[in-house]
Design a protein around this nucleic acid. Structure first.
Lengths: 205, 205
DNA sequence: GTCTATATCGGGATAGAC
DNA sequence: GTCTATCCCGATATAGAC
């Protein structure tokens, strides 16, 4: 039992890494087994087939996302504080895990139905953060803002530079340090843009 | 000869579509052949192997990108006009081709070295648009703005919502029309954010 | 639960006729 | 240039011993 749980964990850690870097089609079961330091057959013993292992990984990752980010409680702080916190957490969560959004994008091409169904179930629009955030803006600024558009803008600004990190590093910067600094600075720079957007937003009558 | 050129074109069109949707590993040579309506052997006759075909596709796509977007001449218009034009062109170019950035992101995970070398060669920072854009801002506003950061912001806001289009459609909207409208509106909404960012940017002394 | 050995199959690639 | 037939390898998956 102890051993079993441990092996399972080893497999999951390795699988997350390999699937993320290579995508579903590019991942090799023997590579996962090697990285986990276990025999290839055990993958099938624990997870039956490649697809099932993959689905398990994705489930774990998306749960982590919801519980880490969209459960952010800003009830006692104002919406500006919320934007700042969300951006900080978002960057810290993804900066070393660009493979996760890559993985979503990869599979959005290959398995759209499955992945879309999964996201529907996550019910992101009804998470604590979104509800509180929206209410807080309404109360303080006395206007309706397009919360969908704001979230799309915020996540675009946060995520794309991380997803294409190596590209930015190659095109703009030379060193890894300056790229890391660039991303670190976005914890302040992105909220500035978003807050300005919200404050200046004119409601169309 | 006529026929050869035509077959080659058929293959390239099909290959672009399949590689883009499935990534390199997920793409199947027989699928490309079927989509092109030709015999599978011809793929090898024309392009020798899967990798070579893939590289050819990527070369075509990136050249198209450079000549369509980054060659945009704004010498005779001001920088605001430039932002508007760039955003419009960018969205029109990618809105039906989300597979292209997907493809870059996919392969950034699998073949980073190759793709990074390719982007270096494109030399995006020295394209007409970037040079004119930067000069135009300097002349009109009399300040140095972080052109790299501006481009990253602009492209993030333009591209991510297209890349994850189906996801946005599922989470926010119900119909395809409202999603299309959402993207169409970004031709005006993204420039607003970027222009505001540039105008309000304070140079740190 | 973990291993060795092996079945099975899909897909990239080639030979060779036309 | 285009086709049919086929090779061959690599990767998923299973059988069965321990």
């Amino acid at each position: 039992m102890e051993k079993s749980t441990n092996t399972e964990k080893l497999i999951l850690d390795a699988a997350l890494q390999v699937f993320s870097q290579k995508g579903f089609a590019g991942a090799r079961m023997h590579e996962i087994a090697d990285l986990a330091g276990i025999n290839k057959t055990l993958l099938y013993y624990y997870f039956r087939c490649k697809k099932k292992l993959f689905e398990k990984i994705f489930e774990i990752v998306s749960n982590e996302l919801i519980s880490n980010l969209f459960s952010l409680n800003i009830e006692n702080s104002n919406w500006k504080e919320g934007v700042n916190k969300f951006c900080q957490l978002y960057i810290d969560f993804f900066k070393d895990k660009r493979f996760i959004p890559q993985f979503v994008i990869n599979e959005l091409g290959e398995n759209p139905d499955w992945i879309l169904k999964h996201f529907s179930k996550l019910n992101i629009l009804n998470t604590p953060f979104l509800k509180n955030f929206s209410n807080s803006i309404k109360n303080e600024l006395n206007k309706e803002v397009p919360i969908d558009e704001i979230m799309v803008n915020m996540i675009s600004l946060l995520l794309l530079p991380i997803i294409v990190g190596p590209l930015i590093q190659t095109i703009i910067n030379q060193s890894e340090e300056s790229y890391n600094l660039f991303i670190e600075n976005r914890k302040k720079n992105v909220p500035k843009i978003i807050i300005e957007f919200i404050e200046n937003y004119k409601v169309i009558e």
